[in-house]
Each structure stands twice: as structure tokens, then as C-alpha cells.
Design a protein around this nucleic acid. Structure first.
Lengths: 256, 256
DNA sequence: ACAAAAGTGTTATCCTTACACCCATGT
DNA sequence: ACATGGGTGTAAGGATAACACTTTTGT
């Protein structure tokens, strides 16, 4: 058991964790036509990092990622998928945090030694509905912050690299799978789902052609009730036909 | 230092390895219109496993995979790519090998303890030219064996699952990248490259349309010299235009 | 009335698909 | 000569891309 007073933080039961291994979560949401990433702002420093965690002896990586996602956002069911394992020898070195940890007395000695290990980290991508999240910081952080994916601060360690790789992963997936059901609220507009595609593919798509193409796939339900309050002509609202959506997830959207 | 006599095998310098972590390599070659996977036949038992290795403290996963590939095949430059990290709690349990190791006195005590850890293993896919390989078994195995990818024996641990995932990975990659340069010899026929596509996609493709489609991509060079000795009409031989091939690898073959 | 956003329609072009046809070669 | 594998051609249908036109709504 470890000492855990008001000043210093410790990880519960370090002896239950697998050494050298960690997970990092790229938790992605959608707002204002942009993808956003959840980061943790560290206590007492202007430093942000991806939410992450460690792997217990009796769980697998998926379970560790699910646990982390739930602890930070309260969510249990979303899109969650492993996409890469990062292992650069110096990926855990970052002058900024070394200075910070030396300045403040934030960690118990045992936790400090644990944190100074070389970690090999498996990264997970989570797609979530931003306003469904009930955000909670972890031991080392004072709050959670969403950042637009293409206007990120300089995160700790190799976390910017991890996010770049996550976006590449999405760019590949979007070619053969429908995307969006986990990011959007129950009802949404065509412009919103098009914005997701444009953001991931990093190119403008023709409005008319996009609509035809995605409606032809048949997993969108159009509702007659329309958006009120907005300026100009009100767009239709859509929702996902989950059965047809899941069928496409299983079979893929054909290329060859 | 460990004892290493004629009867028992030991890993050199266990203290230099990161515990709990391993890598597995799915080394894929092409022969007789089929993809093949390299396996290791264990000493004194009718058991096969994927070639694998451990990670040293001063190397990353890519380096560990490269090292393993080189040790087994002698190859240094090929397609080599991480595709998934396997972490099921019971993935290292296999009754067959426990019985085998108890029967024979194959391992030094230190090595035996090391092997009984729970390993989390990052899997790599290597595409190689089969007849360029200079195969060498490792400490635990007596020889290397190629098996057709759709006629594999029941491999140790979760290795069949790993190979299935590797094939799925290829199936995704082939949608947006050219494949084949690492599998085929310098000169090859259109039928050979079509067979690779058919195998990975698990469907027959129209001969005429495949040829038009792949030639339009522009990375194949047709040679006027033709195959001799074969029955019936001799096919053209092709080779890869590496510059154009690599351009397509960078930019992808468009879908959206 | 006008601008802006949203919905729909039209056309040319390209790609895919499914064949048919011809050519070369060993038996 | 013929069976077999290989190379090329073609016509129908579908998908894509670019753009024009219409509708709705707040100001």
C-alpha cells in the first residue's frame, strides 16, 4: 500500500500492473464541423497529454482501454479500436515534464519510479459523442480539455505523433466502412456528416454528389421534421438505420 | 550467464530483454499461385509456431522484428509492418507445449521461467521472396517450414488467429496500395500478380479486366522477352517500375 | 428583394463488368 | 487440328464530377 496525502499522488496497487506497458487513448469527438481530441491538462503546469493508463495482470489491452475511456468520459459503449503500438526508445523522454515533476512534489517515490520506466504503449482510437461525455481528470491532471484536431498544442511525449497516426487510421477506415454513428447525436444534418468526411479526408467534397452517394448506401433515415431556429432554409434531419449500418460495417463498402 | 549444454537451450542475456513483451512475425511468401506462411517446427514434437522474438531494452519493436526476420530468413530489406498487438490473458496457454516441455528437458530453468510469463505480443507482417530466404531455425525449433496460408496446421497458442488478422490487414491494404513487389521475383507474369490479388481478396477476378486495371496504374514494365519452356502460349514477363510503384505507395490508389 | 443555405436535376466522362474474339504453342 | 492459356476488343450499365437550377427562410 502506498502513501497518498493531499500533496502527492500515487497509483493504487502498482504491483498489479504489468511493467513497461501502457495504453493511450485518442478520444475523438465532433463539434462545429471539426474533429476534436480529448487531452488532460496536468496539475500546475501548462502541459497536456493524451488520457492513458496501465495494464493489469488479469486484463487484456482492450479492457485496459475500455477502463480508461470509462474513467475519463463515463462512456461504456462507443467505437473503440486499437490502431498501433508505439515503442520508440525515447518516446517517454520530455524535458518539460521532468522539470515540472522536479519542481513540484506531485508524486510519491514509488509512483515516480514507476513513471520513469520506458513504456511501450498501445494506442486506441475512440469515437464519442462529445456532449455525452462526463469528463473526469486523473491523478496527475487538473482538468480535461478538448482541442480541435488540427489546432493542437504541443502535447507531451510522442502524443502528437500518435494523434497523426490515429487520423491516418481513420482515413483508411473511411474508405471501406461507414463512419459517423459514434460521433453524431441521434439526429443530425447532412452537412454535419459531410464535414466529418471532409475533415478526415482533408478535402472539400461536392455537396450534391456527397448526398447522392451516401444516401445510395441506404443507412440513413430522413426525418420530415426539420431544424428550427437556424438561419436560411432548414435542412432535413437524419438518423442512422443501425441494422443497415452494421451490415455495411460487416461487409464493407466495396472497392474491388 | 546461463548454462547452455547440448541438451538444454537458453536465451542469451535474459536480463537484457523487456519482460512480458514479445513480437511475432507472419512471414509471407508466394509460390504456386498461393500465399505461404513460414513456421517453426519445434524440436522433438509435431508442433509448429510462428517465428518470434523478444524486445531488448535498447531497441524498439520494429528493430526487434527486423532482427527476428533477419535471423530466420537472412533478409534485411523487405516489406515489414506492424499490424496488431495481441494481449488475451490466456493467449500463451497451450496444453500441447506444456506437456512437451515437461517431457523433454529442453530448457534451462531460467529460460523455462521466462517462457512461462504472460506475453503481450506485437505482430508484424513481412512479405518476402520465398526463394531468397536462407532459413535458420531458432533455439527451440529443429527446422523452418512453409505452409500454404489456407492449409495451415493447428499452430501453437493464438498463432492461427494472428495469421487470420494478418490476412485481413492485407485485404485492407490491397484496396489502396499496390501489393506484390516484395513477394515476386524481379520478373513475373500477369497471372502471378493476379493470383496474389485473388488469394488476398478471396475471389476470382476477370483476367482481361484485371490486366487493364493494373496496367492503367502504370507501375508495371512489360518485357518483350517471353517465358520459354511452358506449355501453350508464352505470357509476357513484367517487372515493377519502382519509382512509380513507390509514388503510388505514398499517394495511395484513389477511392474517394 | 436578396443572400445564404439546402434540395434536386443534368450532362459528359470515366470505370466496371461480362463477355467475345483472336493469337501462340505443345501435344 | 485442337485444346489450352494468353492478349485484346467491345458494348451496356453504373458511378463520378462539375455545375446549373430551384426552394426555403431570415433580414
Amino acid at each position: 500500500m502506498m502513501n497518498n496525502d493531499a500533496k502527492t499522488s500515487s497509483l493504487a496497487h502498482i504491483e498489479n500492473l504489468i511493467p513497461s506497458l501502457s495504453i493511450d487513448c485518442v478520444i475523438v469527438g465532433f463539434k462545429n464541423q471539426e474533429l476534436h481530441v480529448l487531452t488532460m491538462k496536468l496539475k500546475g503546469a501548462d502541459l497536456n497529454a493524451l488520457p492513458g493508463g496501465f495494464v493489469r495482470h488479469h486484463e487484456n489491452l482492450d479492457q485496459a482501454a475500455l477502463r480508461t475511456l470509462k474513467e475519463r468520459t463515463g462512456l461504456t459503449v462507443t467505437f473503440l479500436e486499437q490502431f498501433y503500438t508505439f515503442s520508440d526508445v525515447n518516446r517517454g523522454k520530455d524535458k518539460r515534464i521532468e522539470q515540472h515533476l522536479n519542481k513540484a512534489n506531485l508524486l510519491t517515490p514509488g509512483t515516480k519510479i514507476w513513471m520513469q520506466q520506458r513504456f511501450i504503449s498501445t494506442a486506441y482510437l475512440a469515437l464519442v459523442e462529445m456532449n455525452q461525455c462526463d469528463l473526469k481528470p486523473d491523478l496527475l491532471s487538473e482538468k480535461c480539455e478538448w482541442y480541435p484536431m488540427n489546432n493542437l498544442p504541443h502535447l507531451l511525449f510522442d502524443h502528437n505523433t500518435i494523434i497523426t497516426k490515429a487520423l491516418e487510421h481513420l482515413k483508411v477506415k473511411i474508405r471501406y466502412l461507414p463512419i459517423g454513428i459514434a460521433l453524431l447525436p441521434h439526429k443530425f444534418t447532412m452537412k454535419e456528416i459531410q464535414s466529418i468526411y471532409e475533415f478526415i479526408l482533408n478535402k472539400k467534397l461536392d455537396r450534391a454528389n456527397f448526398q447522392k452517394k451516401i444516401l445510395r448506401l441506404g443507412f440513413l433515415i430522413r426525418h420530415e421534421k426539420q431544424l428550427s431556429g437556424g438561419a436560411h432554409k432548414a435542412p432535413y434531419l437524419y438518423s442512422f438505420d443501425r441494422k443497415k449500418y452494421n451490415l455495411l460495417v460487416e461487409n464493407g463498402i466495396g472497392f474491388i
